[in-house]
Design a protein around this nucleic acid. Structure first.
Lengths: 172, 172
DNA sequence: AGAGACCCCTTGACATCTAAAACATTGAGG
DNA sequence: CCTCAATGTTTTAGATGTCAAGGGGTCTCT
């Protein structure tokens, strides 16, 4: 957490081992903070636009996106896994989307404990409109990177994701 | 949002212009989803460990980090700007940290509307312990990337951040 | 002064999210 | 059958976040 400013702009100062270690530490921390701020910037922008133009929240949009990809319907528990949020949360989101007529619960075949959640016709229609605009927003927000930049970032983040997933599971 | 699977594993199919456009669209979307999932993975891990080992939440940790960097204290309003959350939120966080004896409010000099928030001795002691461990977690989580990888990702994200910040402000 | 605009913080109403416990159903073994 | 562990959903309690409204303080302009 300490940032030494010594040597900046001064005569060429030899970097001893301790300083180098500190710098490597900072490299990870700084990358993490940048990752966080990029994600937050984009997320806040998309969240705000969805709200302003469609009166919908990001969480509900994401849930509808999953259902659109699975027209046969998904169980609450599958939604929970795919959206990486708790089941309790899915209950709440589904309740509201159902109240707005965008999704519908139906009994799951062969398991009376479970529901199958599907988009209604109204839900499909609304989502189609939103998805098109949403895609353009994302393309536009990321247009500061060239195609090659995007490919490279995608690759580097794949490496990171794999490692983090490994560390995470190993620790469990 | 549609993913055409046609041609995968089949005879070499020529990629026409429309398909290429769709792929470029997907490039941005896929990068965005990867960025999001990387951030969420790391954030969830850090949040969980802070909770498990120190019984503290990320939001409170972040607030304490700001105070540690500013021993003279910060006004609520400055905390709000630095943490990029609403003032109402800062009120709640400060209330709780104050109840736990980790921070203290004091009247601000020269402005009776404002408070100055500072870490207490207990807060400083706890934060010192947490910060050290936190830094190690981050270094470890990002150790799947080489130093060069980290530098490159940092650079690419800088480019992205700049562009997004530009788009965001221009639209306001 | 003093009126009005502006700023700082808090409060209240609401949306997400989590963890943990309560329920109900299922399925496997006695 | 019956028990018991696993599974699917909901409920409950609590944290984090937003916005809008409002009480006081401060500042500026006349």
């Amino acid at each position: 957490m300490r940032v030494t400013k010594a040597g900046v702009g001064a005569a060429p100062t030899p970097v001893d081992l301790e300083t180098r270690l500190t710098d490597e530490h900072h490299q990870a921390l700084k990358l993490w903070l940048r990752l966080l701020s990029c994600t937050n910037l984009v997320e806040a922008e998309i969240r705000g636009r969805l709200r302003a133009e469609f009166g919908i929240t990001l969480a509900r949009f994401d849930l509808m996106a999953q259902l659109e990809r699975n027209p046969a319907g998904l169980k609450m528990n599958e939604l929970s896994r795919r959206l990486m949020v708790s089941g309790a949360n899915i209950t709440g989101l589904t309740d509201q989307l159902e109240k707005e007529g965008l999704v519908a619960r139906a009994d799951a075949p062969a398991d009376r404990r479970a529901y199958t959640v599907r988009l209604t016709a109204a839900g499909r229609a609304l989502f189609a409109r939103m998805a098109a605009v949403h895609e353009e927003w994302v393309i536009n927000l990321f247009s500061g990177l060239t195609s090659s930049d995007k490919a490279q970032t995608h690759r580097l983040l794949a490496k990171l994701k794999l490692h983090v997933a490994g560390v995470t599971n190993a620790t469990d």
